[in-house]
Design a protein around this nucleic acid. Sequence first.
DNA 1: GTATTGTCTTTTATCTTAAAAAAACATTTG
DNA 2: CAAATGTTTTTTTAAGATAAAAGACAATAC
Lengths: 296, 296
Amino acid sequence: MSKTSTVFKQAYNRCLSLLAARDCLPSEPELGLALGVSRTTVRTILAHLAEAGVIAWDKRSKVRLRAPVDADFYPAEETDSPAEIIERSFMRRLLAQGVEPGTQITELELAREIGVGTSSLREFLIRFSRFGLIEKRPNSRWMLKGFTREFALELTEIREMFELRSAFAFIELAEASPAWAALDAMEAEHHGFADAIARHYVDFSELDERFHRLIHNASRNRFIVDFYDVIAMIFHYHYQWNKAGGRERNAVAVTEHLAYIDALKSRDKVRLQAACRAHLDSARTTLLRSLPGVVG
Amino acid sequence: MSKTSTVFKQAYNRCLSLLAARDCLPSEPELGLALGVSRTTVRTILAHLAEAGVIAWDKRSKVRLRAPVDADFYPAEETDSPAEIIERSFMRRLLAQGVEPGTQITELELAREIGVGTSSLREFLIRFSRFGLIEKRPNSRWMLKGFTREFALELTEIREMFELRSAFAFIELAEASPAWAALDAMEAEHHGFADAIARHYVDFSELDERFHRLIHNASRNRFIVDFYDVIAMIFHYHYQWNKAGGRERNAVAVTEHLAYIDALKSRDKVRLQAACRAHLDSARTTLLRSLPGVVG
DNA sequence: GTATTGTCTTTTATCTTAAAAAAACATTTG
DNA sequence: CAAATGTTTTTTTAAGATAAAAGACAATAC
C-alpha cells in the first residue's frame, strides 16, 4: 500500500470543528496555517466538505450550508498514522504489560501483530532506540532491555544533573527574558490546580511537562532539551497505565512546583538547589515505587 | 534491488588474510566466530574459495591449495555497505565541506547523489538525528543545523559533565575491578605513544576513544555511555579531515592522559578534578580552534 | 554422544513502487 | 500588483518484493 491519508482526515475533522463556530471559511493559505497543513491538503478538505454538502465552495467563497454533525467526522481509528499506532502499541507492551529484560523481537513479527508495514516499524525502532530501552545487533534482532529499576535510576541520574544545571541557568536569565513571564503564567496555572485538584488531576502531566521544559530550555543546550523527550515519553506512558495514587502524587507535585517557582524567583542558589532537589527526589521515589517487583 | 552482499565480501577478504598464515581452515562454527558472521555466510565463503581454487573443500577438510594473491580480494568499493557509504559521504558534506546552518535537504535528492535507495538514507538520517546536527519537520524536509560554534559548545558542556562524573565513579571502583587492569594496560600503551609519537600520531584517535570509553563505562549509566558515541563520531570525522596540528595536539593529549591516569590511580578527588578539567579544557579549545570562521 | 556438516526456514537490508502531502509555478481576481 | 486560486512537479510516507544473512533443525562423522 502507500502513504495513509491520516493528515487529511485529522485536518478535516479539525476543519469541521472550526465550522461549528463560523459560517464561512478564510482563504486557502490562511486555512492551511490554521490547520497546520499544506494548501494541497486544504483543497482536498474543501472538496470533500463541498461534496458532503457542508459548504458551498466556489473560488473565494466557502459558505457553510449546514452545521457539521457527528457523522461527518472521521472516526478516531482512521485518524491515527501508522507511526502513532506503532508508538502506542509498542509502549503498551513495554510499560503496561511489562516485558522480561532480554526478550528479543523481530521486525516482521511485530509488524504483523500491530498490522503495519515493516518499514514503518523499523523506522520507529531506530527512532526509539535512543531512549535506551532497546538495542540492535547488526543483521540480527532487536533486544528489549526492559523498563527496569536500573533504567529508572540511570534515567533519573541524568535528569537530576540536567535539571539542576538548567535551573541555575534559569536564574541567570535577564529580567526581560520571556521565560520569566512564562514562569509567572505557570505559577498562576499551578494555583488553579491547587484549588481544584480533585477535578483536574488527570491533566496535570501536561502542565508538568510544560513546566520542566521551560526550565530545561534555559540551559540553551540542545542535548539537555532533547533529553527531556526521553523523560516526557516515559512519564507520559508510564503514568497513563499506572494511575495508582495519581491524585495525591499530583497534589504533592503542585506544592513542590510552587516552592520550586518561588525559589527560582528568589534567584537564591541555595534555596533553588534545595527546592529543585526536593522535587527531583520525590519524582524519583514515585517512579521507583511504581515499578513492578519492588516492595515499597 | 535487494540486500547487498557486503557482509560476505568483507568476511571473504578477512578469510583470505587468515589463509595467508595458515594452510588449512578450522570448523565452520569456529570460522564463523573468527570472522564474526553466521555459518551460512561461512559456507558461502568456503564455496567461493573452493571455486577460486584457493582451497580444496570436502566436508571437514579445508586445505589450502595456493597462497591468496591480490586479485583474489574484493576491491574496497564493493565491501562497503550502503549504510557505511551514506555515513561517510554525509559526514564529508557536513564536516569537511561545511554547510550553512539552515540548509534544507531532501531525502530523494541526497539518495540520488549518493547513489543509494531512499529507505537506507532515511534510516541513516533518523539514526543520525540524535547527534543534534539535523532536524526534521513531519511531512517535510530535513534541516541541517550545521557544525557550528554553538554545537561544539553544547557538545563539550555535556561531555565535561559526564566525563567528570564518570571519572569520580571510576575511583570508587573496587580494587579488583577489571577496569583498573585495563587502565594499567592503557597507561603502557600511552607510554609507547610518547616514545614514538612522530611515527604513529595518526592512530592516536583510536587509543583516545578507548581511553575515554573506559572512563565513561565506570558511570554504569547507559545515557552517559551512549553519549560518547556522539563525541566519538564528531572527533573521528572532524579530525580525519582536519589534520592541521595533529601531531602536536596528540603529543599534548598523551601527556594529559598520563597525568589523568596518574590522578585516577591516586584516587585523590582534588587531583583528579584538576587533571580531568585540564584535559577537557584543552580538548575543547582544540575543537573550537579547528572550527571554520573562528580566528584563533 | 558431542561436535560438525547438510538442509530448510526465518529475518534483515535494500530497493522499488504508489499514493498522500508539500512545494513550486502559472494564472486569475479584486 | 498583491493576494488568492488553479495546475504541475517534487517529495515524503508507507507497503511490498527480493536476495543476503542469520537461525533452526536434521543428518552425519569422529
